[in-house]
């Protein structure tokens, strides 16, 4: 890979003794679309909140996050202010609570334009109108004067995306951007994110619990479990040859669209509590293949193939001749 846009090394986060992230290594190339998949509490959102310095003070963060070679973890507020919303933008699950309900949307988009591009007055309004147009809001000129409550959930998410584009970001982090939306609206937003990426060349990190959403939007996927990345591969490869038992479990838990209906291969049990992390591999207590060796140490990610890594002892064993 060429020089990555973002390189995360050994990122760890700890909330008062409870580990939320336990060493994340992740690289995003310029223009790439990466999916981050996992269940609630696995640390997929915390990774980006930590990287951008958005976690509350009691969180202990360590490791390294480099943006185009420059360290941004623990950087000065002035540096972070240029990065956040500028070079790296983030959108969240619930657009209605991310927008200010008492300001017109045009003013909110213009505020982002003022902060990141120094645009004011008529120029800012014209650019805000262009952005609303770009994200597919019909009648953008008049919609500038609408309040968030006058728009639907899908339209509000489009406004959030317009605000994120205001800083002309090199990377857009979308944290469950369609989870609060209906399926037909979800399809519209995913289509829009793909089109914007083609137009602007920005990289995209799509955080989702839905493997299907990631499969349709991203080129590469990282699967997270209990604060670590357990498997990483190109999308087609991950679905064709999932290696980590957790990934296999997630795929097996998805109801199929055709074929006979049989019980789903549900993963037994539930995610471990941060204070009660099992020794060794965190997935071992739920894993159908767990062996004594799994409790001895946290497995490191190993390359199963070029561009495909899994953090499982079995992945290594499968590489060895029988």
């Amino acid at each position: 890979m060429s020089e990555p846009l973002v390189a995360i090394r050994g990122l760890a986060v700890d909330f008062g003794g409870a580990p939320a992230l336990r060493g994340i290594d992740l690289a995003i190339a310029p223009g790439e679309a990466l999916g981050l998949v996992g269940e609630s509490g696995c640390g997929k959102s915390v990774t980006w909140l930590a990287a951008l310095g958005l976690l509350p003070g009691r969180a202990r963060v360590s490791g390294s996050v480099r943006l185009a070679g420059e360290e941004i973890l623990g950087a000065a507020p002035a540096v972070l202010d240029r990065v956040r919303g500028g070079r790296v933008a983030m959108i969240f699950q619930d657009p209605a609570s991310s927008l200010n309900p008492v300001h017109r949307i045009g003013r909110q988009v213009a505020e982002a334009l003022g902060l990141h591009r120094g645009l004011r007055g008529v120029a800012a309004r014209a650019e805000a109108r262009r952005l609303l147009d770009q994200v597919g809001i019909p009648d953008a000129g008049r919609r500038l004067d609408a309040y968030p409550h006058e728009l639907s959930g899908g339209q509000n998410q489009r406004v959030m995306i317009a605000m994120a584009l205001a800083g002309q970001p090199e990377l857009l982090v979308a944290d469950e951007p369609t989870t609060a939306l209906d399926v037909t609206i979800q399809a519209q937003i995913l289509e829009l994110l793909g089109a914007l990426r083609r137009e602007t060349g920005m990289a995209l990190v799509l955080i989702s619990h839905d493997l299907g959403v990631v499969a349709e939007t991203c080129e590469r996927v990282a699967v997270m479990y209990a604060g670590r990345i357990v498997e990483e591969a190109r999308v087609a490869r991950l679905f064709a040859a999932p290696t980590h038992p957790y990934t296999q479990g997630l795929l097996g838990a998805l109801p199929p669209l055709d074929g006979p209906r049989r019980p789903l291969s549900a993963i037994p049990g539930s995610v471990p509590e941060p204070n009660g992390m099992p020794p060794g591999c965190a997935f071992a207590p739920r894993c159908p293949h767990a062996a004594a060796a799994c409790a001895l140490g946290v497995p490191e990610a190993v390359a199963v193939e070029p561009d495909h890594a899994a953090a499982c002892l079995r992945a290594v064993r499968e590489l060895l001749p029988a």
């Binding site: 639907s152 339209q155 209906d182 037909t184 299907g212 064709a240």
Partner: peptide, 23 residues
């Protein structure tokens, strides 16, 4: 038809039917 085509599914090649607007 639109609802079915909007189901995100790993490895499905077919095009989605995109509905305009909101319910």
């Amino acid at each position: 038809q639109a609802l079915v085509s909007a189901i995100p599914h790993p490895g499905r090649g077919q095009r989605r039917i995109l509905l305009q607007g909101d319910p």
